[in-house]
Write a protein that binds this DNA or RNA. Sequence first.
DNA 1: CTTATCTGTGAACACGTGTAAAAGGGAGGA
DNA 2: TCCTCCCTTTTACACGTGTTCACAGATAAG
Lengths: 353, 353
Amino acid sequence: MTPPPPVPGFKKRIDTMEELALAIGVSRPTLSRYFQDPERVSRTSKERIRQGLDRVEYVPNFFATRMNRKSTGIIGVITPYLNDLFFTKLLEAIERAAMKAGYTVIAQCSHSDTLIEARAAETLMSMNVDGALMAPLGNQSDMRVLERLRSRLPFVLVDSRPEGLSDVDFVGTNHVQSTGLATEYLCRVGPPPVFLAMPRVNFNAFEREKAYIAKMEELGHTPRIIGTEAMNEEWFFESHGQAVLDREFAAGRLLEASVLCANDRVAIGALRAAASHGLEPGAKRNGGLRIMGHDDYPLCPFLVPRLSTVEQDVDSIGPVAVSRLVSSIHAQKNHDGQFVKLFDGTLRLRESA
Amino acid sequence: MTPPPPVPGFKKRIDTMEELALAIGVSRPTLSRYFQDPERVSRTSKERIRQGLDRVEYVPNFFATRMNRKSTGIIGVITPYLNDLFFTKLLEAIERAAMKAGYTVIAQCSHSDTLIEARAAETLMSMNVDGALMAPLGNQSDMRVLERLRSRLPFVLVDSRPEGLSDVDFVGTNHVQSTGLATEYLCRVGPPPVFLAMPRVNFNAFEREKAYIAKMEELGHTPRIIGTEAMNEEWFFESHGQAVLDREFAAGRLLEASVLCANDRVAIGALRAAASHGLEPGAKRNGGLRIMGHDDYPLCPFLVPRLSTVEQDVDSIGPVAVSRLVSSIHAQKNHDGQFVKLFDGTLRLRESA
DNA sequence: CTTATCTGTGAACACGTGTAAAAGGGAGGA
DNA sequence: TCCTCCCTTTTACACGTGTTCACAGATAAG
């Protein structure tokens, strides 16, 4: 039997490096070196391999390659939630930075479920990732899982930080500063703001509340927080904000107040409630309803009215977290001290306040 | 030297199954069987292993386990973009369905970059995933990459489907129906709608345009499409919608028109433009500006005004795609025919139209 | 009590690649 | 011509777990 004629565009599929070595005419270890760094083989071999790879289809086995390397070149990332543009923005920044640093990213999502978060951590550990980044669920998170990650591999927390955990690297926003900034601004341009809390899904919720209270007292005002009762502890931020303000407005309260929302998604609900009651936040320069958010959600500039907010510096938080993680990886032995970097927020003033 | 006393909560770390076997007192293959399915070992061994695992910390090596199994139990998912709640919703539905089916999901994001998409495909193939789901970038996608995936493993396209590719399974929305539905509705309640196109990043953009034209002609109206000129081919949908309508309104055009937007994000920009010109879409029942979207973006009910739209049945698309993929995986040999499932859209009427 | 049957076990091999150490090969100098 | 040195390639072993198959032990049937 004659072999079938070579079909243009159809390459012979080769499954193992061994076969490939046979087909090309170099030894397998030479191929192995070539795939890790083409410069590690001689000029002639390099050319020969390159031509050979043009004629066949071969994909190295990810598992086999990573199993024996001292370093897998993988960074694991655990995110609490997908349906939130803040986290997707953060994840994107992280992935870009990690790619630039030469790492493969394995992203896992907790889907706001403690067990899934724990399983994700387990998966990352079983993959021998070089390091892990994690934005935790919050008080729902199993602290033993975090502790386990921390003790096993280079580990950096992002966005939100549990209190009980000691000695964990953390990169996030300085909520005292950011929330303080917003509070101060609102005090300057109108009546002292009310704080519309968010479901207490993570520690940022508490931190922002505390920061608001501190700044208010510093300025000699009495803080007032709404939206804490009957909280569902779920991630339905918009409907939460809407429901709370709906109640207030319907009772004729807060019609001319300044409302500082714990985050932009809560604020979107707040804007909605205002519109439903015929109110135009921020429209009147002197007095009148003001609504402000926190995070600078990508949609803020397109809302009606445009939402004033405090921007979290996600484009710094992601890369810096990655950079710390990478240096932690290279340090081999556990890093000396705890690394904590808090980025300031920036006022984004638009129409709503 | 005496061994250190056992610290409560501190478990001895064991790295390989071999050591674990030694520590527990059963053979390694028995452990291997236990981890795959505890029922495959005798009752006595099961109990012994369970107690042993309580005393030590052991995580099986992901790579080693997957390398030798005939099936890796992994489903790969490639998504074009993260900062879009439509895709995150789809991804979440897919992950949930895959988890329920007992698969591990490895999600990769193209970050709207052809090369990254190709690399993601390469990664999935090198991991010997049992199957792959992909929402392609669109006309930017490298068709050879898709073709390669299709010929190598069970493969199902989701959301958007290239034309050139034959015989690929696909699960998505019936845009002829969904866009037709919106067009028809708008024709019924007001003047025949103008179609505000979206940047032509994928094939749905064309499909919806064509569907709009077809329905308009069927109803005896002349179609009119705006927003096609000077398209940046990028994913800045909101600013695109805003810019296009800004121009129109500023020139005094379309002030009382019905505008069907190619998707909700474009519509959000359109709503913003309307507000900037003092227009209230959908407010007047008889005549007046109407704006409608497509997809049912999670924020639609909270926008001002609440955005009327057509819902894509993401909660069916994701699971059905997974289910087809899984049956494809079990079928071993390539499936007989091409599987195409298109879900109808549902009208979500709110305030804007 | 013997024999047939079944069930769970473990020794041995397999998977596809990384890597250290040994072997090879060519150039340059004596 | 021979030797040495340096760079490249190859040989051989390692990685951690899946899987096969012969075997021992238990159980049931006669």
